[in-house]
Write a protein that binds this DNA or RNA. Structure first.
Lengths: 139, 139
DNA sequence: TACTAATTGAAAATGTTTTTCAGTAAGGAA
DNA sequence: TTCCTTACTGAAAAACATTTTCAATTAGTA
C-alpha cells in the first residue's frame, strides 16, 4: 500500500485521529516532488479543505516527522521545508533550478569515516550527505 | 597572520569600517570551537563591548558570511549557528555531546557522484557532507 | 582638523512558530 | 446506533527571531 492512506493508517495506529484537516495535509505532502514549507503546505492543502488553519499544518507536520514519514530538507536558502521521507538509509539529491528532490542510496563512506575517526579521535555515529545539481529536465 | 586582526583587515579591504562593536563580534566568533547563534554571539561579545546591540551582531555576521570568513552550521536541532569557515573544500565533523566543531578534508566522492549522475540524469554541481559523533573527550 | 558617508543602538515592523482556550468531533464502548 | 471521553480544531494571543527605520555618532580620508 503506497498511498497517502498508509500515512493516515500510521497516524491512526499511533493513537492519532484521522480528520479532514489531516487528510488535506497528508494528501498535499505525500507524493510531492518538491519540498514544501509549512506556509506552502497550508496554501495548497486549503484548496482541499477550506477551513484548515495554519496551526494545524504545523501540528500535523510535527506528527508526520515524529513518525519518520516526512523529513526536513536543509538548503543554503533555508531549512524550513519538508519532503516525504526516504525508506532506510537514503540521501537527497536536489535540483538547484526547479527544486525537485530525489533520493539515492548506495553511498559507501566506511573508508572515509574510518580514516576521519582515526585522524580526529572521533567516534562517528551518523552522516549527512546531500548532492546539488541540475535534474535531467533542467540541465 | 592567523588572528582576528586578519578578519578586521578583510573587512577594511572591502570598504567596511572597523569599529569597537565589530571588534567584539569578530573576537568572539574567531577561534570559537563551537558554533554560535546570533544571540550567543551577542551575549558573549557584550562582555567585551557593553554597548553592543543585537542588531549589529546580525549585521556583522552577515558581512562575515558574505566574505566567507564564517559559515552557517546545519544541525537537526536548528540551522541558525555560525562557525569560522574552513579554507578550501572542507566538511564538518560535529560532536553530538559537547557541540565541538571540526573540519576535515580529503573526501573523494567522485565515483559516487558519477554513479548517481548516471543513474538519475542529474548534472551534479555541489555536495554537502557532514559527520556526527563523539569527540575524543566525550566518547 | 574637518567632512562625508558608513555605522550605531533603540524602537518599530515583519515574519515565523508555539501556546492558550473554548468549542467540536473522532472513534471506541455499550 | 447512541453515548462519552478525549484528541483535535481554528482563532487569537504570545513568544521568538530577524529586518527595517531613523536620528545620532564616529571612522577614516582629504
Amino acid at each position: 500500500m503506497t498511498s497517502s492512506e498508509a500515512w493516515l493508517e500510521q497516524l491512526h495506529d499511533n493513537g492519532y485521529r484521522i480528520t479532514a484537516a489531516r487528510r488535506a495535509v497528508v494528501d498535499t505532502v505525500f507524493g510531492a516532488t518538491h519540498s514544501l514549507t509549512p506556509q506552502e503546505v497550508y496554501e495548497s492543502a486549503r484548496k482541499k479543505y477550506r477551513a484548515l488553519g495554519l496551526v494545524t499544518v504545523y501540528r500535523t507536520l510535527e506528527k508526520l516527522e515524529e513518525l519518520h514519514l516526512i523529513q526536513r530538507v536543509h538548503q543554503p536558502m533555508g531549512c524550513h521545508a519538508f519532503i516525504a521521507a526516504g525508506i532506510g538509509h537514503q540521501h537527497l539529491l536536489l535540483c538547484q533550478h526547479c527544486g525537485q528532490v530525489e533520493f539515492f542510496e548506495g553511498d559507501d563512506l566506511d573508508a572515509l569515516t574510518r580514516s576521519i575517526a582515526k585522524k580526529t579521535g572521533y567516534q562517528i555515529q551518523e552522516h549527512w550527505l546531500q548532492l546539488f545539481g541540475l535534474c535531467a529536465n533542467c540541465r
